[in-house]
């Protein structure tokens, strides 16, 4: 009988010892966001096609070297990457005769304010980057066939979209 009592006591103590430890798990997660400033587009110079530049009734303005190219400046978040898209063609109407001509845009871009080192942009350009001052420059040129154009004024707008990546 004394032997039986002794064994019971030992087993209870062992059970109590198991209870003393406790499982625990720790974790840390990040809460995050990226803040951008609004993009501002400023037209510094309009495109100024000239009949004098026409060769075989086609006026061509090279955005990488023509002084007649338009110029725009985008201001945004410094060093951020952006995607730039623009409409390649614009049909413009003669307000008096209704005659139309099609202007085919070409655009060069540069994070430096330097037209000669600007690169020609495709329709969808990714991974372009604002400079450390949050600026990016565009030169807008193109070509237009004026063979069938009536004399008069043709006015149109150039649309360029900038989207942060």
């Amino acid at each position: 009988m004394p032997l039986f009592v002794g064994l019971v006591a030992v087993s209870l103590v062992l059970a109590t010892n198991i209870n003393t430890s406790q499982a625990q798990s720790d974790f840390s997660i990040n809460v995050s966001a990226r803040v951008i400033s609004n993009v501002e587009l400023i037209t510094l110079q309009p495109i100024t096609p000239s009949d004098a530049d026409a060769i075989d009734n086609i006026i061509t303005i090279d955005p990488t070297n023509s002084a007649n190219a338009g110029k725009m400046m985008a201001i945004g978040t410094p060093n951020s990457e952006v995607q730039i898209t623009y409409i390649r063609q614009l049909v413009m109407s003669n307000s008096q005769t209704g005659n139309t001509i099609t202007f085919n845009y070409s655009v060069a871009g540069n994070s430096l304010d330097d037209q000669t080192s600007a690169e020609l942009l495709n329709r969808d350009n990714r991974s372009l980057q604002f400079n450390s001052d949050g600026r990016f420059y565009f030169w807008i040129g193109g070509h237009v066939d004026i063979t069938a154009a009536d004399p008069g004024n043709y006015v149109g707008e150039f649309t360029l979209a900038i989207e942060y990546l």
Partner: peptide
């Protein structure tokens, strides 16, 4: 002695992620 059935040390408890990454608010505007 007292037995608390909620404190057995050999019960494991694991915290994991169902979806990886941050609690991310993405790109927001000033």
């Amino acid at each position: 002695q007292e037995i608390n059935f909620g404190e057995f040390g050999n019960y494991t408890l694991t915290l994991g992620e169902l979806n990886a990454g941050d609690l991310d608010f993405g790109v927001v505007t000033r």
